[in-house]
Each structure stands twice: as C-alpha cells, then as structure tokens.
Amino acid sequence: MRTSEEALHSENDTVYHIRRGDVWKIHSTDPHSARSTAQTARLSLCLDFADADEPLAIRNDIPATEPIRVPERPEVSAAELEELIDSGRKFTPETMRADFRRFAAVHFERRAHATAAFDWYLEAARRSGDEDLVAKAQAFRTYCIEKRDDGEGFDW
C-alpha cells in the first residue's frame, strides 16, 4: 500500500523488493523477514490463511509486468562476522533485544541466509559468558525459526 526502494523482504537467502500493488504468497514456514530503512514507514497488508493445507489460489492472478528487484549483496567477510559475533561480549539482559537488530541487518546487506543471523546471535551470546543470555538467545531462535504456538509472543 505504501513502499519505497529501501523496503525489502526476504525468504530464505533471497532478498527482494515488493512493489506497490504487488500481491505475494509467502509460505510462513520458510524463514522470512522484512526491513525498511526509509524515513517514511512501509505500509502493507498481510493476510494469514491458517489451517490451509494447500496454498490458496488468488482470484484473477495478474502476472508481473516488470522484473522483481533483487539487490546485489556481497559476501560477509570473516572480519565483519568476527566483529559482529564478538559484540556478544557486551550483551546484557537490557540490550539483547536491540542488539539483535545488527545481526538481522546483515542478511539484508550481505549474502546470507535469513537463519544465519540467529546462529550468529547465539554464538555471540555464548561469548558473553552468561548462560542466561545464551538460553534467551536459543529460545529466541526457537521462537522465530523453529516452533511457536499460535498466538504466542516472545518475552524478552
């Protein structure tokens, strides 16, 4: 409904831009994400068809007339990755939620699978030396990409 070139979506290891007016079917069991760095917030409508065994057909599908924009993303360097993971030494219970944003951003800027951020985040939490933070990072990974109950929220 409202978007900009800075608004990106992803599924697995592919990052792409959804144009205004586009309708997409995303299988929610595949790791997926969204990010916008624009000044004006992205506005979209998501419909969740729970309990559908098969993907639902969208009536009067209209094929795309322009190619989808898939931004080029360079590989993440070993030095960048080490710096990111080593930042876990500074994790605290109060900062963990905000700290994850840096990990999630890498997927949109560098070539990496959507789940890699959670693996790196867990490794970073291990470097904190705090088992409670490691458990929180593992629980967050499980909640986001492995399993959660319908209507469940994550308690930071």
Rank of each mutant, 00 (worst) to 15 (best):
residue 2 R to P: 06
residue 2 R to A: 13
residue 3 T to L: 05
residue 4 S to F: 01
residue 5 E to M: 08
residue 8 L to W: 02
residue 9 H to C: 13
residue 10 S to C: 14
residue 11 E to M: 13
residue 14 T to A: 11
residue 14 T to V: 14
residue 14 T to N: 06
residue 14 T to H: 09
residue 14 T to G: 04
residue 16 Y to S: 10
residue 21 G to S: 08
residue 23 V to T: 10
residue 27 H to P: 01
residue 27 H to Y: 11
residue 30 D to M: 11
residue 33 S to P: 02
residue 35 R to T: 10
residue 35 R to N: 14
residue 35 R to P: 03
residue 35 R to W: 15
residue 37 T to K: 08
residue 37 T to L: 10
residue 38 A to W: 04
residue 40 T to C: 05
residue 41 A to C: 10
residue 41 A to F: 10
residue 42 R to N: 12
residue 47 L to G: 10
residue 48 D to W: 13
residue 49 F to W: 13
residue 50 A to I: 08
residue 52 A to M: 12
residue 53 D to H: 11
residue 54 E to C: 03
residue 57 A to S: 10
residue 58 I to N: 01
residue 59 R to I: 08
residue 61 D to K: 10
residue 61 D to T: 12
residue 64 A to H: 11
residue 66 E to M: 07
residue 67 P to Q: 11
residue 68 I to Q: 08
residue 69 R to F: 15
residue 70 V to H: 07
residue 70 V to A: 02
residue 73 R to D: 07
residue 75 E to Y: 08
residue 78 A to P: 00
residue 79 A to Q: 12
residue 81 L to E: 14
residue 82 E to F: 06
residue 84 L to P: 04
residue 86 D to A: 15
residue 87 S to I: 01
residue 88 G to L: 02
residue 91 F to R: 01
residue 91 F to L: 15
residue 93 P to R: 05
residue 95 T to R: 11
residue 95 T to N: 15
residue 95 T to I: 09
residue 99 D to T: 12
residue 99 D to E: 15
residue 99 D to C: 13
residue 100 F to C: 07
residue 102 R to S: 14
residue 103 F to Y: 15
residue 104 A to L: 13
residue 105 A to T: 15
residue 108 F to K: 00
residue 109 E to H: 05
residue 110 R to K: 12
residue 110 R to M: 05
residue 110 R to E: 01
residue 111 R to S: 13
residue 112 A to I: 00
residue 115 T to C: 09
residue 116 A to G: 05
residue 118 F to R: 03
residue 120 W to A: 07
residue 121 Y to V: 01
residue 123 E to I: 05
residue 123 E to W: 08
residue 123 E to G: 03
residue 124 A to K: 02
residue 125 A to T: 03
residue 127 R to D: 03
residue 131 E to H: 04
residue 132 D to Y: 06
residue 132 D to K: 14
residue 133 L to Y: 01
residue 135 A to V: 04
residue 136 K to G: 00
residue 137 A to Y: 01
residue 140 F to D: 00
residue 143 Y to P: 07
residue 143 Y to M: 04
residue 143 Y to A: 05
residue 144 C to P: 00
residue 147 K to D: 15
residue 148 R to L: 09
residue 148 R to Y: 07
residue 148 R to S: 11
residue 151 G to V: 03
residue 151 G to T: 02
residue 153 G to Q: 11
residue 155 D to Q: 12
